[in-house]
Simulated scan of single mutants.
Amino acid sequence: MRSVRGLLVVVALATSSLLLPQFPAHAAPGDLTCAESESVSYSPGLLTTRRPVDVSVHNTLSCTSLTNPAVTGGHVRATIRGLDRSCTDLLASGSGSYTITWNTGDTSTIGYTRSANYVLGTLVIVESGTVTAGRFAGDSVTHVVELLNLNLLACLAEPGLTSASGLGTYVFA
């Protein structure tokens, strides 16, 4: 009788481990992590007063994905013409969307909110959002970029601040 009861306990434990959900010992990594090189140009350059400016963005991404190893890189290339901008807008918060084109030819459209801080010559921008369409749809996205050695004195006279560049990261989860 004792051995039958012991056998039933072993069977019950084995069966319960098959029926109950299994949780990992730690959180799974995000879908995708990317290192970024970013460059932005302003034409004409940004000044302390607002004026229509064309803003061109070129970001190159180098990525690692555990869930989709074919995605190894991507880029964002866009020019927005006639934006009413000044140097003070660099610190503005806001929201928007943009599209990343992956090395596989797929795209991801990201809707985001933005905040920025200026610290010791570096503009730190944080964008938090969600992939609204395309590859990785539904993932949350955190994008942090540091625009290094920003020369804000250029904002005081023509030609103004004409470019910025820096490094960043993307995390999709």
Rank of each mutant, 00 (worst) to 15 (best):
G30A: 07
C34K: 11
L123V: 05
F136C: 07
R5I: 15
H26T: 14
S140I: 07
G121Y: 06
G73D: 03
A164P: 03
A116V: 05
L120T: 13
S65P: 00
Y112T: 06
S43F: 05
V71I: 15
G129N: 08
L20W: 10
G138M: 10
R77T: 10
L13H: 03
E146T: 08
T113N: 13
A78I: 11
V76K: 05
G129D: 05
T132W: 04
A12R: 02
E36V: 15
L18Q: 12
S108C: 11
G74R: 04
T67M: 03
P69K: 09
L153D: 15
D106I: 02
I80G: 02
T162S: 11
F172Q: 05
A154S: 15
L47E: 01
S95A: 15
L91C: 00
M1H: 06
T48M: 12
F23K: 10
G138H: 04
L8P: 00
C34Q: 07
V53W: 01
V57P: 02
V141P: 02
A164K: 08
S16C: 06
T169Q: 14
S17T: 11
V171P: 00
G30R: 04
C63M: 01
L61M: 13
S37G: 08
L120C: 00
L156Y: 07
T67Q: 05
S37R: 08
V57C: 01
V10N: 01
V10T: 10
N59H: 06
H58L: 09
A35S: 14
G74I: 08
V145P: 00
C34E: 06
R5W: 01
D54F: 01
D106G: 06
Q22M: 07
R51F: 00
L8Y: 03
N151Y: 04
R135N: 06
T33S: 14
S62P: 01
N68Y: 10
G134M: 03
L147I: 11
W102H: 09
L91A: 09
L167A: 15
V4W: 10
G138N: 06
L123Q: 02
L19A: 15
S115F: 01
S163F: 09
V171K: 12
T113H: 07
N68W: 02
R2S: 05
L7H: 11
W102F: 13
L61I: 00
P24H: 10
S62D: 09
T113Q: 15
R77S: 14
L18W: 11
N103E: 10
H26N: 11
L120E: 13
S163M: 11
L152R: 15
S108M: 13
E146A: 15
T67D: 03
A137D: 04
S43P: 01
